[in-house]
Simulated scan of single mutants.
Amino acid sequence: MNRLHFSVYIIERDLLELKPELEAFLKIKELFHDAENQWEYMDGYSMFFDAKVTIFRELKERMNLPEDEKPLHISFFFKRLQDKSTTERIGLELNRFFKLPVFYGELRNTAGQKYELVPEKRFAKINLSGMIKTTGKVR
């Protein structure tokens, strides 16, 4: 497993807005940002995961929301083969960072240069702390 692909539906935030937070979270010195006719992406090397990272999605102007939600794709490229524990670790860390469900699977390039994640696993830990009031008394 040299490549791991994840997706998250976080459409309300621009990539440039997320850049400093992603650099801090992934421990990347600087993410290189670029945009083309259809895609916007960032590349860098994550010291946190010891992997090259590519983050990309279709340009917001090209999205027909909300019916046509486009995910933010995050791909990790490793020098050595990784095991399933790496997938679990990255998925849970991404879920913790985005506070949204994160999907893992195979990224396929379909017709018309569209990328689609075929999900194999969903990371969606929910934190209910602070939402449930208790009296502290046990009956």
Rank of each mutant, 00 (worst) to 15 (best):
D83V: 00
G105I: 04
L100N: 15
R96V: 05
F49L: 02
D68G: 12
S85P: 08
E36S: 15
R89N: 13
N95A: 04
G105V: 01
F56S: 09
E88K: 02
F103S: 08
R57H: 07
K70M: 15
F103H: 13
V102P: 00
P66Y: 05
E40D: 07
K60F: 06
A35S: 11
G105L: 01
M42L: 03
K52C: 11
D50I: 00
E93N: 09
E106C: 06
F97Y: 10
E67I: 15
K60D: 12
F49A: 10
F98S: 02
F48N: 05
K79S: 11
T87A: 10
T54L: 01
H73R: 04
N37T: 05
T86H: 03
K79T: 11
L65V: 14
P71L: 04
N109G: 14
Q113S: 13
P66L: 06
L65C: 07
L72G: 14
W39F: 14
V53R: 00
L100R: 02
F78E: 10
F48I: 13
S85D: 11
I74F: 03
E40S: 05
G91D: 00
G112D: 11
E88I: 08
Q113H: 10
M42V: 06
F97T: 13
F48L: 06
E106A: 08
D43I: 07
E61F: 07
L100W: 04
K84S: 12
F77A: 12
T86C: 13
N37M: 09
V102R: 00
E67W: 12
F48P: 15
M63G: 09
L59C: 05
S46C: 08
M63V: 14
K99T: 03
I74N: 01
Y41S: 14
L31T: 01
V53G: 01
K84E: 15
W39E: 14
F32C: 14
A35P: 12
K79I: 05
V53C: 01
F103C: 10
F49S: 13
L31F: 01
N37A: 14
G91C: 09
D43M: 03
P66W: 02
W39Y: 15
T110F: 06
F78P: 08
A51K: 00
E40Y: 11
I90G: 14
R80L: 08
F97I: 11
N37W: 00
D50P: 03
T86P: 04
N109Y: 06
Y45Q: 02
F49H: 14
P66F: 11
E67L: 12
